[in-house]
Nucleic acid binder design. Structure first.
Lengths: 219, 219
DNA sequence: ATTACTACAGACCGAGTAG
DNA sequence: TCTACTCGGTCTGTAGTAA
């Protein structure tokens, strides 16, 4: 659905169409949006075709109701704005499940991190990570994680090797608690690694290519 | 500002641009909106021209921040959606102050109503009403008031004349408590009459033609 | 009064491409 | 690589007008 359709739907909703039927002429609706009667009329026709509104033609004005489908479209917009202005401690990462052993798995198998992890995140992670590929735009949200504190797991030395600090973020995927692991010295990457108590592929029925949304808590 | 500009601004905000500078290529931004790199680039140029964003060009990607002005535009959208989904007991009526003696004034000078008014609305009204003209689209919101209870002032007989029930709604104009008077048997009208404790023209510095927004409480 | 069709003008998008 | 220009095709809005 294009922007002008959403805008028209929003206008109708603001005139009361989200709650009940409203009676309005295409001329008045057009005026309230700063477009002509013809444009308003066309948009109403298109909205009706797409199933976002229902219309009943009276003798004069038309009666309009927003359908459940139309409300859904509006609510989707609303949720996005809410994320901008209210949800400012959360970051939503959308991506697809990918295969591949990541650094995260290796890090999370180190006892030096494991003990801290249990203490800070509250669970013992399943020994394996879920790799999620992000589109370039989604990956740019990772910049936000750089600016946020998260949960730092201190470095240590083990078997002659030095392990640096690792940053984690509490997260959720569909109500399952998990954590995003951000290895230090993150170059530009477009993959995130997730750990959880259970194997997430099983718990959520995921396979390579499944779409997932990770809700990262900014602490 | 057109819809596609707002949409672009929203996308930038969702990528973190509402809180801090983000670094993103026009290609990635375009993909996240389903448009080409060229279109994304043009929109960024236009947004910068309009003062909604600031850009700094790095060697590769550009760094983008949403300005205070850009945030204002987004917030305006957000407020509209909030009205649709959250504020469902309030109705916002925008109009301009008009002159003319209305029925409301006559009604409100009747002692039979006055005593009830004080009891139900909590103040003694200034003997006069503020007339506000609504555009046709705004006037269609009055249909909502019909469906709402409001505060009913019972009818009575005085000097041989019968006065019917009058419906009032608690309202506010810029934090000043007032009430919208809806005479029964409302034909299609595009004017509302407001009463308050003080003369609203003085209290708010209004003259004919001044724009006002009335926030009507649906009780 | 309305709604909505047609026809055209102007805006917009994206492929190609320069810097 | 990146951004952003030009240019042509397409989309969109509106005046005129019919019903």
């Amino acid at each position: 659905m294009q922007y002008d359709m959403i805008e028209t739907l929003k206008r109708i909703a603001l005139l009361g169409g989200a709650k009940h039927e409203i009676e309005i002429s295409s001329k008045a609706l057009g005026e309230s949006m700063g477009v002509s009667q013809q444009t308003a009329s066309k948009r109403l026709i298109d909205l009706e075709k797409s199933g976002a509104i229902k219309r009943g033609m009276s003798v004069k004005r038309q009666r309009i109701t927003i359908t459940e489908h139309g409300l859904k479209e509006l609510r989707r917009e609303y949720v996005e704005y809410r994320r901008i202005f209210e949800d400012d401690r959360r970051i939503y990462l959308s991506g697809v499940v990918a295969s591949g052993v990541g650094e995260g798995r290796y890090y999370m198998s180190q006892k030096g991190y494991l003990s801290q992890f249990k203490k800070e995140l509250g669970f013992d992670p399943y020994p394996g990570t879920l790799n999620v590929d992000l589109s370039e735009a989604e990956a740019s949200k990772l910049q936000m994680l750089d600016a946020m504190k998260g949960v730092a797991l201190g470095g240590f030395t083990s078997e002659g090797r030095t392990f640096g600090e690792v940053k984690c973020f509490k997260a959720k995927i569909k109500d399952i608690d998990c954590a995003v692991i951000i290895p230090k010295r993150t170059h530009y990457r477009h993959t995130v690694e997730i750990v959880a108590e259970k194997r997430l592929r099983d718990a959520l029925g995921l396979a390579d290519g499944s779409a997932v949304e990770i809700i990262v808590s900014g602490e």
